[in-house]
Amino acid sequence: MSVTPLAGHPSAPDFHGRIGHDARSGHYAVPRRYRLHLSTACPDGLRIAVTHSLLGLDDTCPAVVLPAVPDCRDGGYAALRPLYDASAHRYTGPARAPVLSDAWSGRIVSTHAPAIARDLARHFGSGGVQLRPCAAESEIDAVERMCAAGITQAAQLAGSAGGDASERAAAADRLAQTLDALERWLLDREFMIRDQITAADVELWVTLVELDTAHRNHLDAALVRRIAEHPALWAYARRLAAHPAFGTHLDLDGIARRHHAHCQGLEAAGAAVQILDWACHARR
Rank of each mutant, 00 (worst) to 15 (best):
1 M>C: 06
3 V>Q: 06
4 T>C: 12
7 A>S: 06
9 H>S: 13
10 P>W: 08
13 P>R: 01
18 R>Y: 07
21 H>W: 11
26 G>T: 13
29 A>W: 00
30 V>R: 11
33 R>E: 09
35 R>P: 00
45 G>N: 00
48 I>P: 02
49 A>H: 07
53 S>G: 10
55 L>V: 15
55 L>S: 14
66 L>Y: 09
76 G>P: 10
77 Y>C: 08
79 A>F: 02
83 L>C: 09
86 A>L: 09
88 A>I: 00
95 A>S: 03
100 L>E: 08
105 S>P: 10
106 G>S: 11
106 G>A: 10
112 H>E: 12
114 P>L: 07
127 G>C: 03
130 Q>F: 14
135 A>Y: 14
135 A>D: 08
138 S>C: 14
138 S>L: 14
140 I>Q: 08
146 M>V: 03
150 G>V: 09
153 Q>L: 01
170 A>F: 05
172 A>Q: 00
172 A>R: 01
175 L>W: 05
176 A>F: 00
176 A>K: 10
177 Q>C: 10
181 A>N: 10
181 A>Q: 15
188 D>V: 10
190 E>W: 14
190 E>D: 12
192 M>Y: 12
193 I>Y: 00
195 D>F: 06
196 Q>D: 15
197 I>R: 11
199 A>Q: 09
209 V>G: 04
212 D>W: 00
215 H>N: 11
216 R>D: 12
216 R>N: 02
219 L>A: 08
225 R>A: 13
226 R>Y: 10
227 I>D: 01
228 A>M: 09
229 E>P: 02
229 E>D: 10
230 H>C: 07
230 H>W: 05
240 L>T: 01
249 H>W: 02
250 L>H: 14
252 L>I: 00
256 A>C: 04
258 R>K: 03
260 H>A: 14
261 A>Y: 07
262 H>I: 04
269 A>L: 12
269 A>K: 15
271 A>D: 01
272 A>Y: 05
272 A>R: 11
273 V>A: 08
273 V>W: 03
277 D>E: 01
277 D>S: 12
279 A>K: 06
280 C>Q: 15
280 C>K: 13
282 A>L: 01
